[in-house]
Design a protein around this nucleic acid. Structure first.
Length: 852
RNA sequence: GCCGGGAUGGCGGAAUCGGUAGACGCACGGGACUCAAAAUCCCGCGGCCGCAAGGUCAUGCGAGUUCGACUCUCGCUCCCGGCACCA
């Protein structure tokens, strides 16, 4: 056995051992329960970042843990290989996205392997290969047949200089990222997937996902945004046959409506603008603005009267119609009834434009203080509302809906916030949409036997439009129906399509003739899915939808794709920067900054190593290129080894929380592994047997810690599992030089506890110390309850809830006896000090609280 | 703006059902070993008062419930994630 811990050597040996034994190949077998553990596959951006290391270490810990627990485990890996960054890199380096992507995959695969993950590499695939994306195309065609895919106009960001569609990310402060030209909105035809057809099921089924974090389920539920309300028609004042439809969840406030507001894109706005130049200009201005909701919702409220009026459906009052930039065309009817007294946005708008405010709802058993300083938005009691006065929220909604129904001017209905999924992208590096445009036959689906529509891999985008649209060899084709010359669709699919079902394909990646086969039934659902919290809504919702579509097409027998979900937190690092006189900010990598401390360990200053001058700290932020605060995992692995990297990311914080990078924390992890190795060496050379007292205390300590670790492991709280391992080593360290059954048992527990986190060192010590050939299939250690038995337990003594001392009592002591002992205890008597005792609270096994 | 989450010593974090706040680690201080340094080992380590015993304050801020609150309720502040074409 090596005297010193040499991670590079140990890790090389362990990894070649696993490779030689094909240790991680997953085969369908029925004598064990299966466990499919999946981490979100990476985008091949170039090299691994710390988020990957964290994500895949969590997955690997669970995979190895479940294997020890007797499960038949599968942990696959692949590449989310289509996407925008490949096109950007292609432009920058004048190299096709395909080459860039494949090179990145090769490099990142090596990195993943050097981290020692227990991955079944036989199942690896990349989504940019026709073998995979042909099934995107195939399923799209099935959805088209079912009416689940359809074409309609959609709005995109248009760069008028580059003549190209921009992603939201490429729009910076309303301008194109390359040209700086103000971005315009443009309507173009696009394909949509009808996710709204599944809105109710996607919402209802959240209740059947006990293994999902509550916060993710809440976010999805809010995103789907089911609301029950009333659709109300306001007849036009100049034409009673026509009406303006609005949707509201607050029909109880209808009698307080003082105007209506429509979105800039609403037909009524367009109509009024025809002979109103000022209004037309205003509408143009609104339309030019942001596409992104975050921007729309935070912009200053603006509006303009249309000059049109509608009739209040119950009171018959004439109400003005305004165009307002806070009304979204994409939700409900694109029009709202405005009740300034009881809606904050309406209140602000009405105040700004001096529109009337009419109060109709007051708190229960109180009156409403007027004039209002803000909207009263609570559910209350109606007043000044004619026949509806005195009703509560539900009564008022019901009565008003009934009254509207009678006049045929309204009805109750359900509204969702969720919109259909637009999948068309005017970009090259994605799955071609399998449609052919024929001048005679219209849009014709590509016949199944002509799939896949293969994406050429040799194009280089230049930033002006989609290269596919400039490549006749791609788009020239014949119409499958009439055989005349036709043009292939050049839009590609959103990359979320690729990631919506890859977890199914891992079960059968080599299946050439079908999207899925019978192996899918064995492996799916995914038992544990792990990925960043940033995917809580879109990716996870699309995947759930896609699974349900596949189910309804008879392809899989799954209602939901992921049984358990773990959403890992982001990886942060400190941000250092300098601001120059003209306000320009330069960021410096933390690795290039030297921190000075005073003798209390508090920071005194931070200086750049290069010039010794101070830099400012911007606090902690997510690791990003733009802020230059990333840490390269490669350098870390080379300096300390994979086990140290893995231990650090597991130990630094619980998996769901953000993780703050710390160089000294990494050194701490490395130090622990050195100590472990040194202990292994000393144990091997040990000769003596510990005394009975020490043996008993050590076993008690180790088994208590193990019990806690089992609990933490079940909770996926790996940071405390790592500290359990440290506690066990501390306990073993107290009997250094000892080689007896207790030390032997303790070390075997320690190695197995640590193995999922730091597999290489555990593997090596397990073999070197003669525990067995391979720790891979060793059983997870079991707690010996007998080691935990104690004759006496310690109770805490409190007086009025304040800690005043403690006492030891026999394990089986009766409540009365404990009370008596507590009351006569000197530290209790001192504080009771003769005062009358009101009550004594005894919490068995924990404490006694005397209340005076 | 809307939706979701977070805040505990100098730092990362722990505290299972409301029951000893600060486990484990880092940083720092003192000591041992060493010609010296690194590595390693031992001791200390929330603030304030105190020689000590001990006391007292303390889990972002402000209220409340309770014998007892990091934990539950209400109201704030700041930070982070998402907002439908980044993945």
């Amino acid at each position: 056995m090596q005297a010193r811990y040499q991670p590079a050597e140990i890790e090389r040996q362990a990894q070649s051992h696993w490779q030689a034994h094909k240790a991680f190949r997953a085969v369908e077998q029925s004598d064990k329960p299966k466990y499919y553990c999946l981490s979100m596959f990476p985008y091949p951006s170039g090299k691994l970042h710390m988020g990957h290391v964290r994500n895949y270490t969590i997955g690997d810990v669970l995979t190895r843990f479940y294997r020890m627990k007797g499960y038949n485990v599968l942990q696959p890996m692949g590449w989310d290989a289509f996407g925008l960054p490949a096109e950007n890199a292609a432009m920058a380096n004048n190299v096709p996205p395909a080459k860039w992507t494949y090179d990145n995959i090769a490099y990142m695969k090596k990195q993943l392997q050097s981290l020692g993950f227990a991955i079944d590499w036989q199942r690896e695939f990349a989504t940019c290969k026709p073998d995979y994306y042909r099934w995107n195309q195939w399923l799209f065609l099935r959805m088209l047949e079912k009416g689940l895919a359809y074409k309609k106009a959609g709005v995109v960001n248009w760069d008028p200089v580059d003549q190209t569609v921009l992603a939201n990310e490429q729009v910076i402060d309303g301008r194109g990222w390359r040209t700086g030209a103000p971005v315009e909105k443009r309507e173009i035809p696009m394909y949509y997937l009808k996710i709204t057809a599944y809105a109710d099921e996607l919402l209802e089924a959240l209740e059947q996902l006990p293994g999902w974090p509550e916060r993710v389920k809440t976010m999805q539920a809010n995103w789907i945004g089911k609301s029950e309300g009333v659709e109300i028609a306001f007849p036009y004042a100049d034409d009673h046959a026509q009406s303006l439809k609005v949707f509201t969840t607050r029909a109880d406030t209808l009698m307080g409506a003082t105007y209506c507001a429509v979105a800039a894109e609403h037909p009524l706005a367009t109509r009024s603008a025809k002979n109103n130049q000022q209004l037309a200009t205003f509408i143009e201005e609104c339309k030019r603005g942001a596409v992104m909701e975050a921007e729309l919702a935070s912009q200053e409220k603006k509006g303009m009267a249309t000059g049109l009026f509608v009739i209040h459906p119950l009171s018959g009052e004439k109400l003005p119609v305004w165009v307002a930039n806070y009304v979204l065309m994409g939700y409900g009817e694109g029009a709202v009834m405005a009740v300034p007294a009881h809606d904050q946005r309406d209140f602000e708008f009405a105040t700004q434009y001096r529109l009337p405010i009419k109060c109709v709802i007051k708190p229960v058993g109180a009156s409403l203080k007027q004039p209002l300083t803000g909207a009263y938005v609570e559910h209350g009691i109606s007043f000044d509302s004619g026949e509806f006065s005195g009703l509560n929220f539900q009564q008022a909604v019901d009565a008003i809906a009934a009254a509207l129904n009678k006049k045929r001017l309204g009805r109750k209905r359900v509204q969702y916030r969720l919109r259909d999924w637009g999948i068309s992208r005017q970009r090259y590096w994605g799955t071609p949409i399998p449609i052919i445009h024929c001048a005679y036959c219209g849009d014709v689906p590509v016949p199944d036997e002509q799939l896949p529509v293969v994406l050429p891999e040799n194009l280089v985008p230049d930033g002006t439009g989609n290269p596919l649209a400039k490549t006749p060899s791609f788009y020239d084709c014949l119409c499958p129906k009439c055989n005349k010359k036709a043009k292939r669709e050049t839009d590609t699919m959103d990359t979320f399509v690729d990631s919506s079902w890859y977890y199914i394909r891992y079960a059968c990646p080599d299946q050439k003739r079908a999207m899925v086969d019978e192996r899918v039934r064995y492996w799916l659902q995914v038992d544990q899915y792990i990925g960043g919290i940033e995917h809580a809504i879109l990716h996870l919702l699309y995947s759930r939808f896609w699974t349900k579509v596949m189910r309804d097409l008879g392809l899989v027998k799954l209602d939901e794709p992921f049984t358990n979900l773990l959403t890992q937190g982001m990886v942060l690092n400190e941000i250092f920067f300098r601001k120059s006189a003209n306000g320009r900010i330069t960021y410096y990598n933390p690795a290039d900054v030297e921190i000075s401390m005073d003798d209390k360990g508090q920071r005194t200053c931070a200086k750049l190593k290069a010039d010794g001058l101070p830099v400012e700290s911007g606090g902690m932020g997510t690791m990003s290129k733009s802020r230059n605060n990333g840490v390269d995992p490669q350098a870390l692995i080379e300096e300390y080894g994979a086990d140290t990297a893995r231990l650090f990311v597991m130990f630094a914080s619980p998996p769901e929380q953000t993780l703050e990078w710390s160089d000294t924390g990494v050194e701490g992890a490395a130090r622990f592994l050195r100590r472990l190795w040194n202990y292994g060496v000393e144990f091997e050379n040990g000769a003596i047997t510990a005394g009975l007292q020490l043996q008993k205390a050590t076993r008690f300590e180790i088994h208590s810690v193990l019990k806690q670790a089992n609990y933490d492991m079940a909770k996926h709280q790996f940071n405390t599992v790592a500290s359990a391992a440290m506690k066990i080593l501390n306990a073993l360290d107290r009997m250094r030089g000892v080689k007896d059954d207790v030390a032997k048992e303790g070390l075997s527990i320690l190695l197995r506890l640590l193995y999922p986190i730091t597999p290489h060192i555990s593997h090596q010590l397990w073999r070197e110390l003669g525990y067995g050939e391979d720790i891979l299939d060793a059983p997870w250690p079991a707690v010996d309850e007998a080691a935990l038995e104690q004759d006496e337990i310690e109770l805490v003594l409190q007086v009025n809830g304040k800690l005043r001392g403690n006492m030891r009592v026999p394990r089986e002591a009766a409540r009365e006896a404990i009370e008596k002992m507590a009351l006569t205890h000197p530290s209790v008597q001192k504080y009771v000090n003769g005062q009358p005792i009101k009550k004594v609270v005894v919490v068995p096994g924990r404490l006694v609280n005397v209340v005076v």
